[in-house]
Design a protein around this nucleic acid. Structure first.
Lengths: 224, 224
DNA sequence: CAGGAAAACTGCGCGCACGCAAGTTTGCGT
DNA sequence: ACGCAAACTTGCGTGCGCGCAGTTTTCCTG
């Protein structure tokens, strides 16, 4: 009786449950240790031990220490966006459905996650890993978009999904970076003093807005 | 008053020349050794030695062995796309300018690079590294697009550039992967035996086409 | 319910990526 | 021309990512 089912129905077995349990144990252990003693003073061996598995097994779940820590914050966001899109009524514009689904999904930044994000921001590799997680929403997004579009054009759904992921990444980066870090701010001339942070939903909408015409055109192709 | 020059004018000094020379020496050494004895039988120490620097210095230029090898194929493609876009007359649609620039830039797959690509395809980590290089075109593309759009909307140029990079990546992936590798081919039903490769320009155009409306709308915003 | 196949866990070992703290080279001002 | 400051290089050490091969656990079928 789970609400808007995830797109891919995993072959529910006892095996899969154990895997998910181990995965969750690992990422929570990683986050807890990182918060307790600072991200740099966490050995992989300790994370594995805290989760009750061997270090080698830890590496079967996460390819880097940063991934494990960040996964505790972004867990299940991939499935969340996809199901949120699928939950919208079929009448609304696909662009709006996607935008609202994304905004809603990234609204979960109010609990303890707020302080964790602050911690992440301080360590560059952690921030990079966090931004990389935006790519995870691409496969499920591709699936739901392909469903709406009827599956005519081969690469359209993938391109749109990837573009959304990129836009989300840009929004998050602009929101979290100290601004003017990577020598990128010189594009806009003498304005000076752009608002440093702003609200995340606004940034997400602003980043996704340029893509709306592409979604509209893709939809129009299937239902003139 | 610089013509079709690269967008970022590097502070030409003797220092910079040496750096570029070292970089080129490293990537060519990496490629040569990889071709000669197979990508797996190349130690980082050997690449560094062949280029006349220490292994530690090698890692100041490339973050991974795969990057060094792949860089020999994709060298200068970032600047190439940007200048190719800038070279188009100001009258044409931005979407067309970008598309043609990309197609033209990736047409350089006819020399020795053809066999190298075949080599790359065989080793998964190498292919991944190669696909990752598509992200390198994003910064210069952002700059040229921002110029054409007048710099009004903050994130629009970045989002469009990132979307183009993602589309190129998707096109390349579809072109190079044996198809049906990553459990993705099930989108197309019982057809079976889709053409394995196809032409790269066609794939690029097909992947970029869905983005054209977004470019048009962005252009229309600045010149109604 | 038994038994075999598939999948996951584990120990071992090898390079490798990168921080740090010297040492060395380039650039620039006077 | 000289010398200082900034940039680049280098050696060292540490932890880590992952391929490989063997063992243990889960799954499915007769």
């Amino acid at each position: 009786m789970w609400h808007a089912d995830t797109v891919t129905t995993p072959p529910s077995g006892l095996r899969e449950r154990k895997k998910q349990a181990t995965r969750e144990a690992l990422r929570e252990a990683a986050l807890r240790l990182a918060v307790e003693r600072g991200p740099d003073n966490v050995r992989v061996e300790e994370i594995a031990e805290a989760a009750g598995v061997s270090p080698r097994t830890y590496n079967n779940y996460f390819a880097s220490r940063e991934q494990a820590i960040v996964a505790a914050v972004t867990a299940g966001r991939e499935a969340g966006v996809a199901s949120a899109v699928a939950a919208r009524p079929a009448g609304v514009r696909l662009a709006d459905a996607v935008t609202e689904a994304v905004v809603e999904q990234y609204k979960n930044t109010g609990g303890r996650e707020r302080e964790v994000l602050l911690l992440i921001t301080t360590r560059t590799p952690l921030l990079d890993a966090f931004l990389d997680t935006t790519a995870d929403i691409e496969p499920p997004l591709t699936t739901v978009i392909a469903e709406r579009l009827g599956g005519a054009e081969a690469p359209t759904a993938r391109v749109l999904a990837a573009s959304v992921a990129a836009a989300v990444r840009i929004a998050l980066e602009g929101w979290l970076r100290p601004a003017g870090n990577a020598g990128f701010s010189e594009s806009f001339g003498a304005g000076g003093l752009v608002v440093p942070s702003g609200s995340l939903p606004d940034r997400l909408r602003a980043a996704l807005a340029p893509l709306a015409p592409a979604f509209d055109a893709a939809e129009r192709r299937i239902q003139p």
